[in-house]
Amino acid sequence: MSQPLVKLSGIKKSFGPVDVLKGVNLEVYAGKVTALVGDNGAGKSTLIKGLAGVQPYDDGVVEFEGQAVNLGSPREAAAMGIEVVYQDLALCENLDIVQNMFLGREEVSLGTLSEAKMEFAAAKALSSLSVKTVKSVRQTVSSLSGGQRQTVAIARTVLRDAKLVILDEPTAALGVAQTEQVLNLVRRLAEKGMGVIIISHNLQDVFKVADNIAVLYLGNMVAQLETANTNHNEVIGYITGISANVKEEI
């Protein structure tokens, strides 16, 4: 396989006496969806927060596009093209879609907001993801459904030219149809050449959308599998620790 977009090796992180990550390796490829699965307390969130620059790792090497990098703050991570869509989405309900997508990075000319420019770019970003559920980019977020809000949060990463998009439980609170839409959206992010990491507890979703599945068990990366070569039972085995003695296959 080609060079990975992100390569983590020997990542360690502990909070006081608790070792949350005990030397984790992970490879994420551009244009592929990598699912990060594991039971509660396995270290998924900690691994993600390190990549986002929110909680830097204690030890280990992060390579981004082949270069060893230091992810010391969210700003540095964002500058590199790493965007995180958190579970709570962080949208302003009183603002419309365009305003939310450009929040903090508004286009300005002559000291005033270039609404037209932003509106066009926002509509283009949504169209490029084949979003059909949103009627107008000038709707306020308060009038959107959960799935539509997720769509806006994901489309925001496209607008920011992200290279790596990390999605934290994007389908957790969604119904069947909306889950389908969001998963399609995730696929399209990968088709646009971005690297995608998706955290999910729902294995059905994982098998539907992911190219690779990485399994964390109590702070160890116990398996990194290709979706095509594995099945539910095997993954569940790794998640629950039954197959923990079987070491990495790739």
Partner: peptide, 11 residues
Amino acid sequence: GNPEAARRAGI
């Protein structure tokens, strides 16, 4: 509207 969202947007 949402101070936390504003903070995360770098405001």
